[in-house]
Write a protein that binds this DNA or RNA. Structure first.
Length: 439
RNA sequence: GCGGCGUUAGCCUAGUGGUAAGGCCCUGGAAUGUGGAUCCAGUUAGAGCAGUUCAAUUCUGCUACGCCGCCCCA
């Protein structure tokens, strides 16, 4: 047995999994780029207050799921549990609130929560996200929802349900809470003990309780949507109308609320519908909404904000469940092997022009029979073997063997790139300009 | 964080208070120059630490990790 195990709730991404992450990141990031959301990257940890201030100091999320990593002299640090607050902090710290608005950001980062791990609930997990500051109208809400909906279409996720609701603006929420508080207090005795506690902490949460005792009461509760201010309702109706106009399927869910204090107006959640993910009322693959009070809460001006974040681990698992795209071929397409022993540098040298040309080339490090080398090449998924050191492959010749067609020909060393190119594709090569050009 | 159930080799799966079995994978050979077949051989295991016992992988406890339920879900 291994001497060490990974930390609880944190997992390794072996090459196949890491490749799936990379592929998804390319798709999401390119999409964000097309929408004018450039990438931002913030530190892995923040002053705890960044999260406590924005999430609500009393919420369980903040108080008990914070991943504390404080050290002597570093202040009270916590690994970030989410992306919105850190981006807001960076936005303010670098004075971007004084730049031309709106300001938009995309991120793809690991997040951390000190929760007990369960299926697809890790202590370290990855999220992509969008943040948009300075846009007050419904257009930005509609845009981030459309972005996400379109993303899921783009990657082929179909078993997903878009839910949305409005919870009112900052000035309205106290009214909403008061009205609900009054309603639930009158029926206090009928509520579960847990929800009786919620009466003190977060009345909204009672609305999405799963407890049957609460459901009976909550289902008869006044709708948040009907309690909010006229302006909030108008905003929400505009968002809904926008989705209609764009042909995006959605469901208005009365009980959809958020656990964090900073949300205002629009709240949105994309929930997986596959029964395999039905546990606990469904796993969200993306969630977000509007947070018009956040920037001010953090000491900045009264700037509106809206954003959405999606779980990468969850999305990849959902796609896999759906029997999503074929796994990418990870290994090399070409393998260099040799009938000779102790010609190590020659193998490296033979691979050189092929790699330069853009082929994925691996070496057989030798020390075994040609048969074993070929067997190994096939097992590793190589398409072509370039063989040196055989009698017919001396004097500036090599054998280029197609391992799929089982055909081969003796080729001049100078023509090996051309010959290999007849059997496998070159890969694109990235450049510092950020564009990929054909290699 | 609370409760329940789990953990046998790289993977999957048996079984047992007394020598831990099989399949797949892997390595080598048959076949020192041409591969996914075949045959032969081989490597690798009871999560960790204590306790009970003549003897523990098996029973008990603690710890670690996982899954399920709760809390919560940014």
């Amino acid at each position: 047995m291994p001497t060490f195990q990974g930390p609880r709730g944190m997992r390794d991404l072996l090459p196949a999994e890491a490749a799936a992450f990379d592929a998804l990141r390319r798709v999401v990031q390119a999409r964000a780029d097309r929408y004018g959301y450039p990438r931002i990257s913030t530190p892995i940890a923040e002053d705890k207050q960044v999260f406590l201030r924005t999430s609500g100091e009393t919420s369980d999320a903040a108080s008990k799921e914070m991943y504390d990593v404080s050290l002597h002299g570093t202040g009270d640090l916590a690994l970030r549990p989410e992306g919105t607050a850190p981006v807001a902090r960076a936005f303010l710290e670098h004075g971007l609130h004084k730049a031309a608005q709106p300001q938009r950001f995309f991120y793809w980062e690991p997040m951390f929560r000190g929760q007990r791990p369960q299926l697809l609930r890790y202590r370290q997990f990855w999220q992509w996200g969008l943040e948009c500051y300075g846009a007050e109208g419904p257009a930005a809400d509609i845009e981030i929802i459309e972005f996400t909906s379109g993303l899921f279409s783009e990657v082929g996720l179909t078993e997903v349900d878009l839910q949305l609701n409005t919870i009112g603006d900052g000035p309205c929420q106290p009214k909403v809470r008061a009205a609900l508080g009054e309603y639930f207090t009158e029926r206090r005795a009928e509520l579960s003990p847990e929800s009786q506690r919620r009466l003190e902490t977060n009345v909204l949460r009672i609305l999405d309780s799963k407890d049957p005792r609460d459901r009976a009461v909550a289902d008869g509760a006044p709708k948040v949507r009907d309690l909010v201010c006229d302006a909030d309702r108008a905003h929400f109706e505009a968002v809904v109308a926008g989705l209609e106009r764009l042909g995006i399927r959605y469901r208005v869910v009365d009980g959809l609320v958020r656990g964090l204090d900073y949300y205002t107006r629009t709240v949105v959640e994309f929930v997986l519908t596959d029964p395999a993910f039905a546990q606990g009322g469904g796993i969200a693959v993306a969630a977000g909404g509007r947070y018009d009070g956040l920037v001010r809460t953090m000491g900045g001006p009264d700037l509106p904000g809206v954003g959405i974040a999606g779980g990468v681990d969850v999305l990849i698992e959902a796609l896999r469940k759906q029997g999503g795209g074929a796994p990418r071929e990870l290994g090399a397409d070409v393998i260099v092997l040799s009938a000779e022993q102790n010609d190590d540098a020659d193998r490296v040298q033979l691979a050189l022009p092929l790699r330069e040309a853009g082929f994925r080339v691996a070496l057989d490090y030798g020390g075994r029979s040609l048969e074993k080398q070929l067997e190994s090449a096939v097992k590793h998924g190589a398409k072509v073997a370039v063989i040196r050191g055989t009698p017919e492959a001396r004097g500036g010749n090599v054998i280029v063997r197609d391992l799929v067609k089982k055909e081969q020909r003796v080729t001049r060393l100078a023509a090996v790139v051309t010959e290999v190119g007849r059997h496998v594709r070159k890969r694109t090569r990235p450049t510092l300009e950020g564009e990929e050009s054909a290699g």
